[in-house]
């Protein structure tokens, strides 16, 4: 079965990203396919590689990155929500005249159409937020 997951909150303040991560992992472990994880609203803040949590805490961003690398999970950060909140890859930074980018490994920035497509293509869309 094909699953997609939507994450609406950033890391550390809300549990949503943790729940979404554990759910996504469990989907893969059950032998299902994860078509896409879409990050929206403050959820785009899961995609910054500048996150530096204390050593005794989990690294929410790095965990997502590892999932993307190990299982080829498509992690998509919404471009409009990302622009508002200062999440950029090299192309976005250049296009908007910014001198830095901060997107974490395994994430890509794309449009809202990717969320709708995930809803159409997937058998299940599961949303995590506040």
């Amino acid at each position: 079965m094909k699953f997609s997951v939507m994450v609406n909150e950033g890391p550390y303040n809300h549990q949503a990203s943790d729940s979404a991560y554990h759910f996504t992992k469990a989907v893969l472990q059950a032998g299902h396919e994860v078509f896409r994880v879409f990050f929206y609203h403050d959820g785009v803040n899961n995609g910054t590689r500048l996150t530096t949590p204390p050593q005794d805490d989990r690294n929410v961003v790095a965990r997502w990155s590892e999932l993307a690398v190990e299982h080829k999970v498509d992690l998509v950060v919404c471009v409009a929500a990302a622009q508002r909140r200062g999440i950029a890859d090299a192309d976005e930074a250049k296009r908007n005249g910014k001198n830095a980018d901060n997107i974490a490994e395994g994430f890509r920035i794309s449009g809202l159409g990717q969320l709708i497509e995930a809803g159409i293509v997937s058998d299940r869309l599961v949303e995590f937020g506040d």
């Binding site: 554990h22 759910f23 469990a26 989907v27 059950a30 299902h32 299940r124 599961v126």
Partner: peptide
């Protein structure tokens, strides 16, 4: 979480 996935499926 495995049960969560089962319920969703």
């Amino acid at each position: 979480y495995d049960g969560f996935v089962e319920l969703a499926a």
